[in-house]
Design a protein around this nucleic acid. Sequence first.
DNA 1: TCAATAATGTACTGAATGGTACAAAAGAGG
DNA 2: CCTCTTTTGTACCATTCAGTACATTATTGA
Lengths: 194, 194
Amino acid sequence: MARTVSERADILPLLGEVFREHGFEGASLAHITARTGLGKGSLYHFFPGGKEEMAAAVLAEIDLWFETNVFAPLRAQEDGAAAIRDMLGRVDAYFRSGRRVCLVGVFALSEVRDRFCGQVLSYFARWREALADALRRTGRAPDTAGEDAEDAVLAIQGALVLARALDDPAVFTRTLARLERRLLGMAALHAAQQ
Amino acid sequence: MARTVSERADILPLLGEVFREHGFEGASLAHITARTGLGKGSLYHFFPGGKEEMAAAVLAEIDLWFETNVFAPLRAQEDGAAAIRDMLGRVDAYFRSGRRVCLVGVFALSEVRDRFCGQVLSYFARWREALADALRRTGRAPDTAGEDAEDAVLAIQGALVLARALDDPAVFTRTLARLERRLLGMAALHAAQQ
DNA sequence: TCAATAATGTACTGAATGGTACAAAAGAGG
DNA sequence: CCTCTTTTGTACCATTCAGTACATTATTGA
C-alpha cells in the first residue's frame, strides 16, 4: 500500500502553502495530510522531526530560492539598476502580484519567530544588504543606500499585509511600481520604458 | 470563590497581548487563563462565544482606540501637517516604538482574516482615507494623496514586520522619521523642529 | 439580615492535537 | 522469482484543545 512516487522536495511547496495560510500553530497535521495527500507515515518518514522539521525545510527551500533568484543577482549583476528591476519582477512573480503572502513575514510576526530566529533574521538582513549593494552600484550615496534598501524591503512586506487585509492585490502592484520610481528615479524609469 | 473585581474591559488588553504573541490559533485557553489569571468560568461568563468573541472584542477595542486617537484627529484637525505629526507620535507610542506588533496586521496575514474580514478591512481602509484627508489639507495634490497615504500605512505595517524579524526596534523608529519627511517634506520638518 | 444575582474555580466532556508503532505493500536489484 | 529496502496507511497513544456544568462564593440591594 504505497505509491512510492513522492519525493521530499515535491511536497515542500505544498507544505509551504499550508504554513502560509494557517501559520505554524494553525497548520495541523490534518491540514497537512489533506493538502499533500500523504499519510502520517510518509510525512514522518520524510520529516522525523515533525512539524518543526517541516517548517524548517520549507524555510530552507524559500531561503535557497531567494538567495539564487533574488539576493545573488542583486549582488552580482554589474548594472545595479537592471538588477533592481529584475528583483522587482521576480518578487512580483513570487508573491503572485500580491495574492500570496510571505511565509517568513508571517513567522516573524508570531511567537514562532524565536524558534526560527536565525533563518528569519538572515533572510531579511541579506535581502536588505544585497539591495543596498545594488543601490550603491547605481551611484547612490553609500550612507543613504542602506536606509533606502530597508525602506524597500519593508514596503514589500507591508504591501503584502495591506493587499490581503483590503483583499486588493493592486495595492501590491502599485507598491512595486512606486518602489521602482523611488529606487531608480524618474529618469531611469523613463529610460527603461522606451 | 470569586474575586468579583474584574471587568470585561479590564482583561481586553491582556487578551490582546495573548493574540498578538500567539496569533488566533496559537492563543490557547491555557495561555489566556494564565495571562489573565481568570478561570474558564469567568472567561466564558464574559465571552459566551469563546475565543471568537474574545478576539472580536479585542478588535473592537483596538478599532475604537484608533478611531478616537488616530483616525478622527486625522480627519478633524484643521492643520493637516500637525495632524499627521500627531498621528506618527501616537502610532509610535501605541506600537511601543516597534517592540509591539499590530494585531490587525497579524490577523490579516493568516486565514483568520476571513473570520474578521469586515473589521480588518475597515481598520486599514479608514486609516488610509483619514490620512489621505489630512494630506490633502496640507495642500498635496488630491490624486497623489490617496497613494501616498496607502504608502505610509503599509510602511508602518512593514516596519513592524521587519523590526520584529531583525529584532531591531530601531527599524520602526527610522521608518516613522522617514515617513514624516516623506509626508510633510523637508521644509515642513525643519519648520516644525525650530 | 437575607434573598437574589453576578462572578468564579473545578471537574468534566468529546473531539482534535502531534506523534509513534508497525505491518502491509511497492520498488529495486539481482 | 526472491530478497531487501523504502514508502505508505492504519491503528493507536497521551496530551491538549475548546467548551459545559455546576457548586461555591461575593456582592448587591432591600
